[in-house]
Design a protein around this nucleic acid. Structure first.
Length: 267
DNA sequence: ATGGTTGATCGTCAA
């Protein structure tokens, strides 16, 4: 089985890329983030004709997530719980959808960005991660994968220049501690052993030709329970999908600012 | 400190 995670930055504007990606890499389950679409706006026709089923959260702004699977989608669950004091519960619940696909529980996650360390959204991010951790402890003894855009760079080598991230979100001690808590609970970063340094980047800002200069970040992860991690036989990042020049040459529009992460599992 | 780019939606916010 082959699974992937990809922050697509609008599934409607990039459905051609999504369908081509699924075919090019023979993907069984794709977790997507930042769908930027309500459920009734999802472009399903092509996906269904390719044999995929879709489960998604609905939110029209920026934080919808989805699972696209051709090995079944069972026991769908959405979100974790309301975030007291942080507006509409949809804001938190639209960030996570989980289902059993091909015998594996997969969660597509869009961890809150945090914006600035003094922004209420930063505290919301840490709180949200704490709730995710509590929920994830219940699935640790099953084949489970927590995949998506974590908006955290756990190591200094996961950003192009750690000096530029002083006082910035994504690299703070509390965010890294929140990430490491999953590893302490028995989950593992199953892609780390297959990449090194700047070859592990999954995100490059649209600004300032960050991709062309390889000034990126590693913030998209596949975190597996022991029963999941034991089945991982390989992993890679499809950096070509982020290449604006390659996309243009292939007649495609602008890429997402994130590249897909692909993981192979033994049967 | 600022600016640069993209998407949803159509002035402005979020990333």
């Amino acid at each position: 089985m082959r699974i992937a995670t990809w922050n697509v930055n609008s599934i409607r504007s990039r459905i051609d890329r999504v369908e081509a990606f699924l075919q090019r890499h023979d993907i069984d389950v794709l977790a997507v983030q930042e769908t930027k679409a309500k459920v009734d706006q999802l472009p399903l026709m092509g996906l269904e004709s390719m044999g995929y089923e879709v489960a998604a959260t609905g939110f029209s702004q920026w934080n919808g997530v989805a699972l696209i699977s051709r090995v079944g989608i069972e026991d769908v669950q959405v979100g974790f719980s309301e975030m007291p004091g942080f507006g509409d519960p949809l804001v938190s619940e639209a960030r996570a959808i989980g289902a059993v696909c091909g015998g594996v529980r997969i969660w597509s996650l869009y961890v809150p960005n945090g914006r600035k360390v003094d922004d209420p959204h930063y505290a919301y991010k840490l709180d949200w991660l704490g709730r995710l951790r509590t929920a994830a402890q219940q699935w640790r003894d099953e084949p489970t994968a927590l995949v998506g855009d974590w908006n955290i760079a756990p190591l200094d080598e996961d950003v192009f220049d750690i000096a530029q991230f002083k006082n910035s979100t994504h690299v703070t001690v509390p965010e890294r501690a929140a990430f490491n808590a999953f590893l302490e609970d028995g989950y593992a970063d199953v892609v780390r052993p297959h990449i090194s340094g700047d070859a592990g980047y999954t995100y490059w800002d649209y600004y300032r030709q960050r991709f062309e200069r390889n000034r990126g970040m590693r913030i998209d992860f596949v975190i597996g329970s022991p029963a999941f991690s034991d089945r991982v036989t390989g992993a890679f990042i499809d950096r070509d999908e982020r290449d604006p020049a390659l996309g243009k040459a292939n007649g495609l529009g602008s890429p997402s600012d994130h590249a897909p992460v692909i993981v192979n599992l033994s049967d």
